[in-house]
Structures are given as structure tokens and as C-alpha cells.
């Protein structure tokens, strides 16, 4: 498959040619930040911001979704009809694509298939966009995420001068850009140079393999309470995260008829683990903080083979009390050093 070139000035017409056949979702400007939203006209696409405020996960795993409707009297259920028009996610940054890759493992690999996720995900095309400069809270490089490429994307755009270099990864992607001119060898070199120039800085966080040991040893460490002391117990961090996937299922009924709804939930809510008996196994902030960190860096890795943090920095960015996941890992490292 040959890589392609798109002039920046032709982005809108390219986008509009997609809208005819696909549901196009792209970053859209929204009051001082951008959000991934369905676009009616490609001129709405806004690539001025670092990355959308919320991750791309809600495209395949929405915050609320009706799983089925029910009738209490007849005891019958029916699933809502679903839009068969395929989705194109345009302009996804590498950290979000890595998030989708992690969610794919969770929802579509192994024995547990999530049909609600899969029907959306299987009917989608991903178009990535290089992120030229990491934000002040970003640390995707720590996880080895390449901001200039992604295997999971069908197409990957890298802006340079007045053009986009389009890396074509799949047949489905190739079909979308058939009519565009091929990229020259010189273009490929330019993009490669851009990538090298933007090499990642060093991180003063314990490396991943050391972290695994620290997390195992530090399960009962006092440092968790220290870290969590300022946490106010909202779930903003889990809601903007590209990989957090906990949900709750509730029934909403009006008369005989109702619906079963799946809604995002967050492990940082004190009542997240409240049992029907009234017992709550995680009453302390430290226990909840530990759960969030260990799920990302330990449990998810054990179960799915990858760490489920993509270093997008959103949780740190929006935290009302500046709980910064990089600081948390650093603090954990320091605590382990003190102990040994």
C-alpha cells in the first residue's frame, strides 16, 4: 500500500467526501477546548488544540447506553436498533489510539466479548493524527507510544509544511485515499526527520518494570494514604481517561415499560464498591487511589498484557486538586526507596 499526500487546504473537501458515506467524528471546538464530536461539515474540524478534553473512548463505549428495553407485564425485551452507517474517527492522537487498542483487548479479546462495544468498533475506521508537541501534563513517551505513528489506525496523518503525509496501514484505509497523490520518498524522509527531532525527553518516573515490582511490594504501603490525602473523591479522572472502563447497570422504568442502561462509573467514588449488605471494602481514599493505579499498571497488564495508561495526561490536567499521575508514580518510587 502506497502512502499518500493531502494538501492542508484540501482537508475540508476530503472530510466532506467522507461524510456522505460515513458518520464522521472529529475534534470540534467547544468553548476553549476541543471534543470528539460528530461533524456535519468538515469545516467544523478543529485541530488547534493539543488533544480533545475527553478521550475518544465514548465513541465505542458511550457514557450512557440503553442495552435493551423491557416490558414488565409481558416479560419481553428488545434491543434498540443501531445505526449501521460506519463511523470514521478522524484526528485521533496516538494516546487515544493506544487507549482504543487497550479497550479492544478488554472488550473484544478472550472469552468475554462485549457485543455493544463490538458492533460499534467493528464498523469503524480510525484515522490518526500526529501530535507535534506534548502538553505540560503529557507523558505518552514514557510508555513508548509514538506520537507520529499508530498500528491500530487505518490511516495516520502527519502534518508538515502545507501538507499531510498519510501513512496507509490497512486496505480499508487505502480505499478512502485512493484518489490522492502518492507520497514521494523525500516526503517520507521529512516526516521521519520530524519524528527524530521530536524525540522524547527523559522521565523521572521509575521505569515500567521497576514499577511493577514497586506496586507488588507497596500494596500495603502508607504512601497511598499520603497520596490520596488531597483527593476529593470525584470521578473526573476516570471519566476523561482513554482506558477506564468501569460501568454500572441500572434500570429506569416508567410504568410497565423501562430500559436497562449502562453508565460509566468510577473507582474514585467512595460508594463505587458499596455492597448491598452495607459493607464497603474500600472506605479509605488510599485504597481507592491504589485501586486506580494498580488497575492501570498491574492488573490490566496481568490480564490483558499491556499497561492501561497511555500517558495522555488528561487525569492530571483536569484534576481539581492537582493529583498528577506522574507525581503519584514518583512518590511511590520514593517511598519504595525509603523502605529498601
Amino acid at each position: 500500500m502506497k502512502d499518500k499526500i493531502l494538501l492542508k487546504e484540501n482537508l475540508v473537501s476530503f472530510g466532506n467526501s467522507l461524510i456522505e458515506q460515513y458518520r464522521l467524528i472529529a475534534p470540534v471546538k467547544s468553548n476553549g477546548f476541543s471534543l470528539y464530536k460528530p461533524v456535519g461539515n468538515a469545516s467544523e474540524i478543529c485541530l488547534d488544540y493539543l488533544r480533545p478534553l475527553k478521550s475518544a473512548k465514548e465513541i465505542f463505549f458511550p457514557q450512557n447506553e440503553t442495552l435493551f428495553f423491557f416490558n414488565k407485564k409481558t416479560q419481553k425485551i428488545a434491543e434498540p436498533a443501531y445505526d449501521k452507517k460506519p463511523t470514521i474517527l478522524f484526528g485521533a492522537v496516538a494516546c487515544d489510539l493506544a487507549g482504543i487498542a487497550a479497550q479492544d483487548r478488554l472488550f473484544s479479546a478472550g472469552a468475554y466479548l462485549d457485543s455493544y462495544y463490538l458492533k460499534r468498533r467493528r464498523n469503524s475506521i480510525l484515522i490518526g493524527m500526529a501530535c507535534p508537541e506534548p502538553g505540560e501534563m503529557c507523558f505518552c513517551g514514557f510508555f513508548g507510544i509514538d506520537r507520529f505513528a499508530s498500528d491500530i489506525a487505518d490511516l495516520f496523518f502527519t502534518p508538515f509544511s502545507d501538507k499531510y503525509y498519510i501513512k496507509v496501514n490497512t486496505e480499508a484505509g487505502a480505499r478512502l485515499v485512493e484518489s490522492l497523490p502518492d507520497a514521494a520518498a523525500a516526503d517520507a524522509k521529512t516526516v521521519e526527520r520530524l519524528r527524530c527531532e521530536n524525540a522524547e525527553p527523559k522521565w523521572d518516573i521509575p521505569p515500567l518494570d521497576e514499577l511493577a515490582r514497586m506496586l507488588a511490594e507497596g500494596f500495603e504501603a502508607d504512601v497511598w494514604d499520603e497520596i490520596a490525602q488531597k483527593c476529593i473523591g470525584c470521578a473526573a479522572c476516570t471519566f476523561v481517561c482513554p482506558t477506564c472502563h468501569c460501568f454500572d447497570i441500572t434500570d429506569e422504568a416508567k410504568g410497565e415499560i423501562g430500559r436497562r442502561v449502562r453508565t460509566w462509573d468510577g473507582c474514585m467514588f467512595p460508594k463505587f464498591t458499596l455492597h448491598a449488605s452495607g459493607h464497603n471494602p474500600r472506605t479509605k481514599g488510599g485504597q481507592r487511589m491504589r485501586q486506580r493505579i494498580l488497575h492501570k499498571f498491574s492488573y490490566f497488564k496481568d490480564n490483558q498484557g499491556v499497561v492501561s495508561c497511555t500517558g495522555c495526561g488528561r487525569c492530571a490536567e483536569i484534576c481539581p486538586v492537582n493529583v498528577d499521575i506522574r507525581e503519584v508514580l514518583k512518590q511511590l518510587g520514593e517511598a519504595c526507596e525509603r523502605k529498601s
Partner: peptide, 14 residues
């Protein structure tokens, strides 16, 4: 509390 008409019908029939 939008329920598509055809779904409402489908689950109403015993």
C-alpha cells in the same frame, strides 16, 4: 423516555 414505536409494540405483545 423515548422508546421507538416498533420496539414498544414488539415488547407489548405477549
Amino acid at each position: 423516555f423515548e422508546i421507538p414505536k416498533e420496539i414498544e409494540k414488539e415488547i407489548a405483545e405477549a
